[in-house]
Write a protein that binds this DNA or RNA. Sequence first.
DNA 1: TGTACATCAGTGAACGCGCGTTCACTGATGTAC
DNA 2: TGTACATCAGTGAACGCGCGTTCACTGATGTAC
Lengths: 221, 221
Amino acid sequence: MTARSREGRTPRERYRSQVRAEIKERAWEQIAASGAPGLSLNAIAKQMGLSGPALYRYFSGRDELITELVRDAYRSLADAFGAAAESGADLAGLGRTMRAWALDDPQRYFLVFGTPVPGYHAPDDVTVIARGVMAHMLDAARRVEGPADDTALQAHLAREEHRRWAGDHPADPAALRRALTFWTRLHGVLSLELAGHFTGMAFDPALLYGAELDTLTHAVP
Amino acid sequence: MTARSREGRTPRERYRSQVRAEIKERAWEQIAASGAPGLSLNAIAKQMGLSGPALYRYFSGRDELITELVRDAYRSLADAFGAAAESGADLAGLGRTMRAWALDDPQRYFLVFGTPVPGYHAPDDVTVIARGVMAHMLDAARRVEGPADDTALQAHLAREEHRRWAGDHPADPAALRRALTFWTRLHGVLSLELAGHFTGMAFDPALLYGAELDTLTHAVP
DNA sequence: TGTACATCAGTGAACGCGCGTTCACTGATGTAC
DNA sequence: TGTACATCAGTGAACGCGCGTTCACTGATGTAC
């Protein structure tokens, strides 16, 4: 008879997911050390005291492992946003959450928002998870009060949204614009900072980041 | 006797620099096709109808080639900025120049501003060229009129600048702040766009870019 | 102008390495009766 | 409780590949007298 723990998982299943988790952990360590392009299945196996082919019991190949890491990265950011929103964070709160998430593991940030590897295309479900992240930003952007002056961009967003939803559920263009600006401005500071482009420039990137956050919550533009 | 053309370059020297140039050209093609991590000396040699070791007559190794490409990329951006400034471009003009330069060869943009390869450190002279790019932005930022309200960031920049120059030649903190914001905001839009993060979102990134440009030339924040 | 020599681009073989991935297999663990 | 069978984690050998880099060499080009 099968020994089933709670949740109906057999010991074998539990073992499987533990090993899978350890593989991913070592993969993150490798990525942190030498970036995504340097990720090697054989190196992970060796580090775990396994032979290379053993990993193929857990992932169909290198690509699937990377995809899984991307998924996890998106999910963890979505979770962080979710938790922040849960405890009443506004747009600025999400911004601080994003910065903390990025600094926590810069290479994880770059895996998701960094230079794309030509030729690699993430599966569709990753896009869905990414949209979940965007949804959190949109939600918070919607709750920002203050005048949103009518720009050409906003009109453009309104037009495109109407076309997409055929007039049914167009998103608030002002919120959309704010969410986009939130994303690009914070990404601009974060990615340059994490890439080391501010080193030797004698200023605290956190203050620049904070200044950008202020422009977003007080008034846009 | 040596046949010297104008500039005192012998035919051999001319030949050398032609081959060097072709190597770099093929290198750029490869980077465009498969990114910087996929750059391979052997592949370049094969494409030129040469054997692998032949390239070592022209570059001391892979790292020197990459460094040279980074240098060229920075220089071409600095040149583009210089030409724009020459013909009277303001900060917005530099912004449009930067976008054109980025779209012209996205992988070149990423080579310079994208995810850093852990472990690789550019030589010092690259930093000097990079500072030249920043100088153009600062120059244009200085010529923007309009109220620059006093923020904590600005005060911070003023303090740090004073410390760096020991009170001698501190840069105008308002201009510094504007140049930094110029850089990060435009990079934010550009890098997300080039990385394909806006695909499927049904809006024109150029308009978002333009909106950010407007915020920079009209009033900051 | 011709000859002896030096320079230097490019070759081919080789080294050592690591990669992803396949395959047939062993041996332990779980399952069914 | 014991026995026969099925499942499945992991191994070791092998395949084919490409990488950066070194080395001793050939042959063409330039130089000096």
